[in-house]
Amino acid sequence: MSIIVDAGGLSCPQPVLMTLNKIKEIKKGEILIKVDTDTSKENVSRAAKSQGWKIADVQENEGGYQLTIKKE
């Protein structure tokens, strides 16, 4: 069960801040991030990659996107 960051409805930089805080907290593993705009999806992906995390999956749903990021 991965950790969930629900940034739906929040505009940048909030989704990135929340993701980076979670990355700092757990160091490695899997995080599932909910965002609602393409901008947030791009920004979160960029920030995660800069921390050495991989984008494992991106799902589009009615309310936006669900990103799964991973670090072994």
Partner: peptide
Amino acid sequence: FLKGGYNLGRVQK
């Protein structure tokens, strides 16, 4: 402020 938790809340569709 952003680091201190400032935000204007979530939007609605």
